Amino acid sequence: MSTATGIGSMPGTTSADFAEATRLVLGELPDLPHVPELPGRGVGAQMTGRGLAVVAGLAADLQPAGWRLTDASGADHRRARSLLAQDLDTVEELAQDHVGAFKTQVAGPWTLAATVEKPRGDKVLSDHGARRELAQALAEGIGEHLADLRRRLRGVERWVVQVDEPALAAVVHAQVPTASGFGRHRKVDLPEASAHLEWVVSAITAAGAEAWVHSCAPQVPWSLVADTGVRGLSADLDMLGAGDLDTFAEVLESGRTAVLGVVPSTERPADPSDARVTERVQRWLDMLGLDPEVVRERLVVSPTCGLAGATPDWAARAVRLSATVARNL
């Protein structure tokens, strides 16, 4: 049977909302629940803030222009770390009896480099040494984060770390704006882009977990990502170009995982039926020449990106629909 999971983000603005989201994913996605993320609670709960809460050995603070590396952690950085710890306390309490697999998410090295500033301004992306240091600090921090999760949830036998890289395509295609907004940062050469991802993937693997890379952006260099040692690729089906299909097919054929975002993350005038979504996935497999009977255990179904912007009712509906489609497959 195929598996269903969530991308990570969920709607909500309070700790009570986080607890409710945790109960939802534990109840409806029992084969692969995930640590929810509620970006609606503020910058410390959003992707960059949460990523900096995991990074080891680097301090940051929130400036008018966004997150910036600093000599000492500012109040917002301390709050981000405190919020992460509180969330994990909730997950520990509610998932104490969970056995099997569990997923957590963290911002990737290139997304952090494209959204965090150096101490004197401009993005970390603009400095070769700074982006290397940030990537290595992230790799170290993920190892510590996984060790913490293992202590909290001792029944989990299989950990998956989803590395979120929504900015990767912009980084390699020179589309990240400079501080002035009038220019673009130089593109990062593909060997360096690969190396930084490999550091993070290797740290996850060394910690005994599976590394998946997720992006919901178009023009992601998926063939590069697939060669970094990752065990899974995750994307919205609508964002995959013709050239990406072969890469996803090769991943499935090699025994690795492909996560397809196929359930709409926001409510539509016509409620999508599980039969229609299931048929769409089956057509995709048929187009790639893949036998559903052979690859279904490595195929994971999820909602598309953007679930944080949904109503709580629709978010619950999307999660349940993903689980139904996975059972259908």
Rank of each mutant, 00 (worst) to 15 (best):
A4P: 03
A95H: 12
A310C: 07
L190K: 08
R132W: 03
T205D: 13
A19F: 03
A242W: 08
D238H: 13
G241K: 10
H214Q: 14
Q96A: 15
G51L: 07
D286Y: 04
S202L: 02
I204N: 07
P11S: 02
H34N: 02
P191F: 03
A130Q: 13
W212T: 07
D246R: 14
A170M: 10
L224T: 14
G243A: 12
V263D: 02
P119D: 01
R132D: 11
S254K: 04
K103V: 05
L32Y: 09
V213A: 09
V188D: 02
T257Q: 07
R327A: 13
L190I: 14
D313E: 14
E20L: 11
V251Y: 00
T14G: 06
G57E: 05
W110P: 08
T205I: 06
G143P: 13
G66T: 12
V220N: 01
T205C: 02
P269D: 08
V277I: 15
V25H: 04
Q86G: 12
L197D: 05
H77V: 10
D271K: 12
R79P: 02
E267I: 03
S73D: 14
V91Y: 09
T115A: 10
G57H: 09
A195P: 03
E93L: 14
G57D: 06
E297D: 15
A315M: 04
